[in-house]
Design a protein around this nucleic acid. Sequence first.
RNA 1: GCCCUGGUAGUGUAGCGGCCUAUCAUGAAGCCCUGUCGAGGCUUCGACCCGGAUUCAAAUUCCGGCCAGGGCGCCA
Length: 597
Amino acid sequence: MKRTHTCGELRTSDIGTEACLQGWVRFSRDHGGVAFIDLADRYGITQVVFDPEDLSKDADAEALAETMRSFTRESAVSIRGTVRSRVEGTEDERNPTGDVEVLITSAELLGKSDVPPLEVGDQKEGVLPSEDIRMKYRYLDLRRTDMIRTLETRSRFMHFARQYLETQRFLEIETPILGRSTPEGARDYLVPSRVHPGTFYALAQSPQLFKQMLMVGGMDRYYQIARCFRDEDSRKDRQPEFTQLDMEMSFVDEKDIQDVIEGMLAHVWKGLYGKKLETPFRRISYKEAMWSYGSDKPDLRFGLRLNDVTDIAGKADYEIFRRIISKGGIILGIRIEAALAEKIGRNEVDRYIEHAKKVGLGGLTWMRARDGTLDSNIVKYFSPEVIGNLIGKLDIKDGDLLFLFAGPEKATQEGAGQVRLKLAEDLGLIPEGVFEFAWLVDCPLFETDPVSGRLTTFHHPFVKPRSSLDDDNVMGSSFDLVLNGSELGSGSVRINDPEMQRKAFSMLGMSADKIEKDFGFFLEALRYGAPPHGGIALGIDRLIAMITGKETIRDTIAFPKNKRAQSLFDDSPAKVDDDKLEELQILSLAMDDLDDL
RNA sequence: GCCCUGGUAGUGUAGCGGCCUAUCAUGAAGCCCUGUCGAGGCUUCGACCCGGAUUCAAAUUCCGGCCAGGGCGCCA
């Protein structure tokens, strides 16, 4: 028997035709005579009915009933029958196939299922098993409609992205996964070389150097759906291997790159949702993002902006503020309007103070607006003039609640930004289904590590500076794509001058030797007519998670790793046989029998 | 490496010193039922992560471990 339709296909127009369906037994309902099976596949669910009164004479009702008894939940089965209209009044309007059913005439068990350890059918309560159960039986978890829809969205997203890039003259080119380990960046996954004992490849952390060399090679416009590997601890939006939509273009500036991404996402949006995506995206400078949102990936779906009140509140006769100001610190304020502020009682304020301490702030100072002035336990230290200025600057009205944060610049911005996010969440200010894309621009080229005092890059060492590398606080040509408080990718124009590139490495503390050894091949490539070029890479797992409303990227990946970088479906990583290690001339310090050697 | 939360039948949960022979739902097995759609009814089955300690008494408290998730560090 060959299937004639999928389980999401049959409609009233098919009534009277013979159909063969193959799929999984989702639910079955035996009424003692008439019995129903909900047959499911990726495309939908169709009701199959066994009706002894309506069976044709030549059908062997007893044999058929026997076969159907073997149809345990989630077994793969094949059924044949006649499409007919449902009995009037029993149509299921929630289901596109709900007006018809297939009157079964023959059936075959294709793959019997043991009792499934998790429930595949959509549950009213929406309770999922724990993630380790879902991962161990991922093939069953994948049968759930939610997982099917998510992976469908991911596939269609990539389809439309490819479609757009092809029209924009991009070439899809693969780059090596096995490459050289380089000093900068994340910890590498290493792969031993059998042919050259004692040497190792590193799995690609990104195709950065290769795509730049493709530009030197005249490919002009490149893209790749690139798997990248970083051996760092996982988070809900980070795992050891992940997918980037990577691209690079020659003879372009920052805006050219941004235009391509905007055009591509608009094309994807139209394809996925039939909706227009508003472009161009808004631009927000790094500086503004930090001062107004306390984050370099601001969530722009709601207000609660931070305000710099250093000059005003710093004049208060308040010891804590005085001390902070004298050390060069800042004071930021968030105004919570009356309608929302009334939900925050004294106990809630205390919880925010606790939260502030958790996110690296000393605490927070609060005041409530009443009768045209500000009231709180510490208001006596604030002169009428300071209070008047605060009210004026933040446009404070009666009933409003004011939070003040004081401390060193960056820590205070980031801490206040964290409190802002928590406020928005608690107060329900984050709208569903809203996509606030933005470009974070005007980023510094370097940062100083607050612990070691060393110079580090804000993005990576290949970013072209906007002015001389020697300038104080030199700006880079790099920019981030931000969506709803999440960083989706960063791009830049690259350095295409070998001497400038060498100097950038050197400023990051790399010795001339090290530069030559690790990047000599790349610096040499820049000496043969390297065109000005730039590009960007988008984190696809994150992007899909955001547009499908998933908490974790693991829900957008068919076979993800867990928090401890293991996959429970194939139980990896795993030990290998000694002879394999021997062939690679590898001796592990973690080997059980090391003491015996 | 560190911090936080959790671990109870196949699955999701309640219980948080004695009322526990451990709740409820779902599931599974069996029986009944000819129009359901997470079918329904009846019966049955099935669990306190591991080790130690405290106590007359531990699922419950304490200590150590293991497992899962969230976070810090890390992630050019």
